[in-house]
Structures are given as C-alpha cells and as structure tokens.
Lab assay of single mutants.
Amino acid sequence: MEVRTIKVFTTVDNINLHTQVVDMSMTYGQQFGPTYLDGADVTKIKPHNSHEGKTFYVLPNDDTLRVEAFEYYHTTDPSFLGRYMSALNHTKKWKYPQVNGLTSIKWADNNCYLATALLTLQQIELKFNPPALQDAYYRARAGEAANFCALILAYCNKTVGELGDVRETMSYLFQHANLDSCKRVLNVVCKTCGQQQTTLKGVEAVMYMGTLSYEQFKKGVQIPCTCGKQATKYLVQQESPFVMMSAPPAQYELKHGTFTCASEYTGNYQCGHYKHITSKETLYCIDGALLTKSSEYKGPITDVFYKENSYTTTIK
C-alpha cells in the first residue's frame, strides 16, 4: 500500500517557510505537534488534498525554529505562539472599519479597549522592536488589523473576551517599542525636605499616572512627601515624541487643539466601556464603527496623549 502524501510549508514567522512532505494517514499533531492554519487549530486533523502548498504555523520545537521565533517575536515564552494563534482565530472574524481616516474595530468580545489602543497607536510616533509587531502594525494602518490585535493580546497575556485596560495595554506595548531616546527629568520640591531631581528613561519617561493635564504637570502637581507634608512635583525636561497622561476616570474637559487623542471610560472596574476622542479640525468621538463630532467635550476621561518633541522648564 502506497503512502499518500502532500507537500506543505511549516513556519513560526510566515517569513521562513520549511518544506514538509506530510503523510495523509496521520494527523498534523502526530507529525508536527500543535499546528495552526489561519489561526485555526488543526492539530487533530489529517492532511487533505486542499492543504497542498498551504502554510501551517507550528510551535518552535527545534533550534532553527526557536531562533526564527525569537528573532521575529522577541520572546522565548513557549506558550506565546499558541496564544497568538488562538487569538487570531477570533480577531480574523472582527470587522476593521476605516473611521475618520483611522483603522478602528467594530465592537465584539469586549474589544473596546483594543480599538482605543489601536486608534491611539496610529496617532503617536512609535516604532516597535519585534519585527512581528512592526509588520502587523503597518498592515493594521492599511486596514488589516487582525494579526496586530492578536499579537497585542498575546504580548499582554490576554484572551479574547476578557476586559482590558488601555493604560495597561499601552504599557505592555511600550515595553516592546523603541523608547531608548526618551528621557524625563522631574523635580520634587518640599518646604521641609528641599528639592530632589529624578531622571527617568524609556517607558517611565512617557507615562504618568495622577493627572490628565500635561500643562498642569509642567506647572506642578501636589504629591505627598515622605515627611508627610505636601510637596510639588513638576516637569523639568521632556525628550520624547509623545507623552501619555493618565488618571482614574473623572469628568474632564478636553479643549480642541490642546491634545492629540484621549480615552474615555464609562462604567466601573468590573464592567465598563471605552471610547476614543481625537482632536482634528474639530473633536471626534470614535466608538467602534461609530463616529460623532463636537466642538467641545466633557466626560469621564482616563488617558490623554500629547505630541511632544523637546521641553525644558522655565521655572527657576
């Protein structure tokens, strides 16, 4: 009895394709271990004539594949690729409408935090270190965002349907971005203890939790000093293409032309909904596939993004 075979390709990165001759009487799992086709788990399936010449994702289970996976995804987590594939199996079914010149995501599976993050990423200057993220990001900007969303979920250790947080998501993504040249110098002034300067680099240099107003941050924000008295913390120097200011959701007025974009969060910790506000020729609110415009805006804002380049204080 002759062994019926077909020729397929296996890959971990969709760049390096490895030619395989597979036995049609055995499952993919018996031949390769966990195997995925377009995100779908085909591990328990036997090869079919229609699979001839198709590319299958496999887990990096030998040295060659491990090197290829690390170079593309910059992670050695053995569960990463499987999590990416199972997320992709959902995100490829989502709709990605162009809204006001940006790629958004039609609401499904509690994905409003991903839509808000995706919209924000198209408006701030950011370059990702893992080629996987950078490639998928370019495709997302062009309207094909399924891979990018699935990668975000995998890097953030999230599953489809789980509630997510924009600030946490951005923080994970910033860790995989090139923020080497970003720098922030802060000064804390206390009447009792004097003053202390701190220099922050990388992710810490672009994120701040405690106030939404970048102007206020430049002037000074009140913080408790270690001595128990009130101290003032203010920005001395900022070198970065953008800054992200966050605070627990509270009524906040966004003035046209003073910011790049913002995240609105309605609801409580267990259950809520994100919308995205962007400042173009007027203010726009993007909620999944829905767009509304207004000249002014007041609502429960939790993150505001500002364009920056270089700032030095005039406070002496």
Rank of each mutant, 00 (worst) to 15 (best):
V3S: 14
T5C: 14
T5W: 11
V8M: 15
T11P: 05
D13M: 05
N16G: 07
N16K: 10
N16Y: 09
L17M: 11
T19H: 13
Q20R: 12
V21E: 14
V22N: 05
M26R: 11
M26T: 06
T27P: 11
T27H: 11
G29V: 06
G29T: 03
G33L: 04
P34F: 10
T35A: 08
Y36D: 05
V42K: 08
T43I: 06
I45W: 12
I45C: 12
I45Q: 15
K46F: 11
P47C: 06
P47M: 05
N49K: 13
S50T: 12
H51W: 06
H51I: 05
T55W: 07
T55Q: 08
T55M: 08
F56G: 05
F56H: 04
P60Q: 06
N61M: 13
D63Q: 10
D63F: 08
T64V: 14
T64E: 15
L65C: 07
R66G: 10
V67N: 15
E68D: 06
A69F: 11
E71F: 06
Y72M: 10
H74D: 05
T75W: 04
P78M: 10
F80C: 04
F80K: 04
G82P: 15
S86K: 14
A87W: 02
L88F: 10
N89T: 12
N89Y: 13
H90E: 11
H90A: 13
T91E: 04
K95T: 14
K95V: 15
Y96M: 04
V99H: 13
G101H: 06
L102Q: 04
L102C: 06
S104V: 05
K106Y: 11
A108Y: 04
N110F: 04
N111H: 05
C112P: 06
L114I: 11
A117N: 04
A117Y: 03
L118V: 08
L118D: 02
L118F: 11
L119D: 05
T120S: 10
T120D: 04
Q122I: 05
Q123G: 05
I124M: 06
L126H: 03
L126M: 08
K127M: 10
N129R: 15
A132I: 03
Q134D: 07
D135F: 08
A136P: 02
R139K: 13
R141K: 15
R141W: 06
A142S: 13
G143S: 03
E144L: 07
A145P: 10
A146V: 05
A150K: 02
I152K: 03
L153D: 04
A154G: 04
A154P: 03
Y155C: 02
C156Y: 03
C156L: 08
C156P: 04
C156Q: 08
C156T: 10
K158F: 03
V160A: 07
V160W: 03
E162R: 03
G164A: 03
G164I: 01
D165V: 01
S171E: 08
Y172H: 11
Q175A: 11
A177D: 00
N178L: 06
N178E: 13
N178D: 12
L179D: 04
D180S: 11
S181C: 12
S181L: 09
K183N: 07
K183Q: 15
V185N: 02
L186R: 03
T192P: 04
C193D: 01
G194E: 00
Q196Y: 14
Q197Y: 08
Q197M: 11
T199K: 08
K201L: 12
V203I: 11
A205P: 03
M207D: 03
M207H: 07
Y208W: 09
M209T: 15
M209C: 15
G210F: 03
Y214Q: 03
E215Y: 03
E215H: 07
Q216I: 07
F217W: 07
K218I: 05
K219P: 01
K219I: 11
V221Y: 08
V221F: 10
I223S: 13
P224Q: 13
T226V: 14
C227Q: 02
K229V: 08
K229G: 15
K229I: 08
Q230K: 12
T232P: 01
T232E: 07
K233H: 10
K233F: 08
K233I: 13
K233D: 01
K233C: 14
Y234F: 09
Y234C: 06
L235E: 01
V236Y: 08
V236L: 08
P241V: 00
F242A: 01
S246D: 00
A247M: 07
P248N: 08
Q251P: 12
E253A: 12
L254E: 02
T258L: 07
T258H: 10
F259V: 02
T260G: 00
C261E: 01
A262N: 01
Y265R: 04
N268E: 14
Q270R: 08
C271M: 14
G272V: 01
I277M: 02
I277T: 02
T278S: 12
L283M: 12
C285Y: 05
C285H: 10
I286G: 02
D287Y: 00
A289W: 05
L291I: 13
L291P: 06
L291Y: 14
S295V: 11
K298I: 15
K298F: 11
P300A: 12
D303F: 00
F305D: 07
Y306W: 01
K307V: 14
S310L: 15
Y311Q: 13
